[in-house]
Design a protein around this nucleic acid. Structure first.
Length: 481
RNA sequence: GGCCCCGUCGCCAAGUGGUAAGGCAGAGGUCUGCAAAACCUCCAUCACCAGUUCGAAUCUGGUCGGGGCCUCCA
């Protein structure tokens, strides 16, 4: 079975066949750097990070370009509010973005270009459009003429007449048609600007992506991604600009991720349910957030809520506990040359899920099955002396780490992750680690004296606070949940 | 108004023609001083109605409910 992807352009899943065998060019719209990233950005970037990793995993040589849009109305406005230069503002939030993505454990794209470093390309692209009669200059602005690009709206499947009735020309614009959009904006006082054949000005919103994508990936490339909300107008306009200039198909597969809702409502500033990544990471482990995002298919909406995040925390803990148990027991077993194909089977199931339009939810389901198998085998009598079973656990353990790695999961040392998670949960109970150790000691004494009432009392008190005691062969350990 | 999406077990969530993955929670069991953890077993016919089909959660039409885009937005 080979990879199939859902293409927004055709509205269906298609076999993935890159333009150049073995190579993939992929462009994902990055952020406009004027504020901290929210969890919607987290989702989009995690999703395309997984797509990037998986394409590499199955053997493609991927050229992944993700841009920074560092010139834009919002940046200028925000910079003016704060009395700093747009450049400084952009720099600040580029750094913040990089920090956030690093904390989320994202792989770095091949190239992360900035719009302001591509003004030359932008200008020449605009000029090409003017030369072909698809764009026109008007009082220092340059607009794209949608009437001269017949396939306009083919991605968003809208109707020009319906759109036109709702479109308006805002004061200060010099459009011939309300649907036309700016490629180049004449400079206004207090704005950054660059020299151009049409006078000093700056790029419109959409053109920078066309210019950067074509610069690094060529006039036609394989995958273009972004959030669903970018379908119109951003991606529609990118197609218009790019295909208008080149006469060639711009992108073969358009991929769009779904939204993040918060407690069933659309996340928005006006509703006050807007969470930045850094806010969330104060309360949640980054890997829990990543796990949460990946337990739903990338095109479905996901509902961000405390309850759902807790669910994800428990789910991820299950993996780490299983991995920890496996590595402990494997370390205690003598090496043997017995092999198992359980890892191969798991990988095949994983790939089958991922090949179906990057179905991470189904893929994780397969990984859960492997955890259960590991736990079952380890619990069986005489496990350590059974080389076949030890080999199977070894194979599953390795495969789990390998495949988890494709999803950016299980990257921590299990013992360390579990410990850190425990301590974080413990902090909420008011107890310290030594408090718990003391309780365990007291209970141990009581148990030794067969004072089970006292022993149970201690255990129940802790349990009420969310601390579970686990009596094992090597003594009592604890866990918070 | 136009375009698009969704409605699967208490919760989360896969599944686009062949008889419902997985996680959390719950019930019973094994283990345990008793528990917990782990393991085993159990737990849904897919919003509703009508069609197409040998066969539909999956296709078609309709009803109800929810959401998104159409203005900046991942």
């Amino acid at each position: 079975m080979s990879l199939r992807v859902y293409n927004t352009m055709t509205g269906r899943k298609e076999d993935f066949e890159p333009l150049n065998p073995g190579k993939v060019g992929m462009y994902v719209c990055g952020v406009t750097v004027y504020d901290y990233c929210h969890i919607g950005h987290a989702r989009a970037n995690v999703v395309f990070d997984i797509i990037y990793r998986y394409l590499q995993f199955v053997g493609f040589d991927v050229n992944y370009v993700r841009n920074y849009t560092d010139v834009d109305d919002k940046i200028i406005n925000r910079a003016n509010e704060r009395g700093i230069s747009p450049d400084d503002l952009a720099g600040e939030f580029i750094q913040a973005f990089d920090e956030d993505m690093q904390r989320l454990g994202l792989a770095e794209p091949t190239i992360q270009p900035k719009a302001t470093h591509h003004i030359e390309h932008i200008i020449s692209l605009v000029q090409r459009l003017i030369d072909r009669g698809i764009a026109y200059e008007s009082q220092g602005d340059v607009y794209f003429s949608v009437e001269n690009f017949p396939s306009y709206l083919k991605l968003s499947k809208r109707n020009m007449d319906d759109m036109r009735s709702g479109a308006r020309i805002t004061p200060g614009e010099h459009k011939r048609n309300p649907m036309d959009f700016a490629l180049w904006k004449a400079v206004k006082p207090g704005e950054p600007s660059w020299e151009s054949p049409w006078g000093p000005g700056r790029p419109g919103w959409h053109i920078e992506c066309s210019a950067m994508a074509m610069e690094y990936l060529g006039e036609s490339f394989d995958i273009h991604g972004g959030g669903k909300d970018l379908v119109f107008p951003h991606h529609e306009n990118e197609i218009a600009q790019s295909e208008g200039a080149t006469g060639k198909p711009f992108v073969k597969y358009w991929l769009h991720n779904g939204f993040v809702n918060v407690n069933q409502e659309k996340m928005s500033k006006s509703l006050g349910n807007f969470f930045t990544i850094r806010d969330i990471l104060k309360s949640y482990d980054p890997e829990v957030l990543r796990f949460f995002i990946l337990t739903a298919h990338y095109r479905s909406p996901i509902d961000f809520s405390d309850h759902n995040l807790q669910d994800s925390r428990l789910g991820l803990s299950r993996f780490y506990e299983g991995l920890q148990a496996a590595s402990e027991v494997l370390a205690a077993c003598p090496p043997s040359d017995v092999t198992s194909d359980a890892g191969i089977a798991l990988e095949n199931a994983f790939r089958e899920a991922m090949d179906d339009d990057f179905n991470t939810a189904a893929a994780i389901g397969q990984l859960f099955d492997a955890v259960r198998t590991i736990n079952r085998l380890i619990a069986e009598k005489g496990f350590r002396k059974n080389r076949d079973k030890v080999a199977e656990v070894g194979a599953l353990h390795q495969a789990l780490l390998k495949l988890g790695g494709v999803l950016g999961l299980f990257i921590s040392e299990p013992a360390a992750w579990l410990k850190q998670m425990n301590l974080a949960m413990l902090a909420a109970t008011g107890y310290s680690e030594t408090d718990i150790e003391d309780f365990i000691q007291q209970r141990q004494e009581a148990r030794k004296n067969k004072d089970f009432a006292r022993a149970d009392e201690i255990r129940d008190e802790l349990a009420a606070k969310g601390i579970q005691l686990l009596d094992g062969a090597q003594g009592t350990t604890w866990k918070a949940r």
